[in-house]
């Protein structure tokens, strides 16, 4: 017990905090520094409140951007790995539909353009007279008025 009293008496030397110092006028300046910090925190909070929409959708925007980047990467990778294989994957139905549409577009004007092309004129075909052609067309029931005036 006496020892305990002795120890506590020794520790009394620390009771006045004299071993610790503080900067000059620290306590005089402290309330002002604290108020300054509070005001600056409140001002920055105000700025954040003005931009809540961006803050709210920031995560969604980031996710969307990630998906777009992934899609672009995948597309680029396919282009590099198999550049010619893309047409193989066209569905057959699409190919038939496309061909059918092209056949229907074969009208007289298209045929006229085809006959008039230089490559066909120079092609190695048997000699046909105008009479031969007219007879062929009459047999086929073609509209002679249109065809003959254009020739």
């Amino acid at each position: 017990m006496a020892k305990e009293k002795d120890i506590l008496k020794k520790l009394e030397r620390l009771k006045d905090n004299a071993q610790f110092a503080v900067p000059e006028n620290y306590f005089e300046k402290l309330p002002g520094s604290i108020m300054e910090r509070i005001k600056s925190e409140e001002a920055s909070k105000q700025v954040e409140i003005k931009r809540p929409v961006i803050k709210l959708i920031r995560n969604q925007l980031a996710i969307a951007a990630s998906f777009a980047a992934l899609a672009l990467l995948a597309y680029t990778a396919i282009k590099i790995i198999a550049p010619d294989k893309q047409s193989d994957h066209l569905p057959l139905d699409d190919i038939y539909a496309s061909l059918e549409q092209e056949v229907h577009e074969l009208d007289e004007v298209f045929m006229y353009d085809l006959v008039n092309t230089e490559s066909l004129n120079n092609a190695n075909t048997p000699e046909l007279s105008e009479q031969d052609i007219i007879e062929y067309l009459m047999e086929e029931g073609a509209d002679l008025d249109l065809s003959l005036t254009d020739f």
Binding site: K10, L11, R13, L14, A18, Q19, F20, A21, V22, P23
Partner: peptide, 16 residues
């Protein structure tokens, strides 16, 4: 920089 205790105070403080 703001500790200015003497040797005895330092020993007591270190014990704490």
């Amino acid at each position: 920089a703001y500790f200015c205790g003497n040797e005895a105070q330092q020993k007591l403080q270190e014990a704490l």
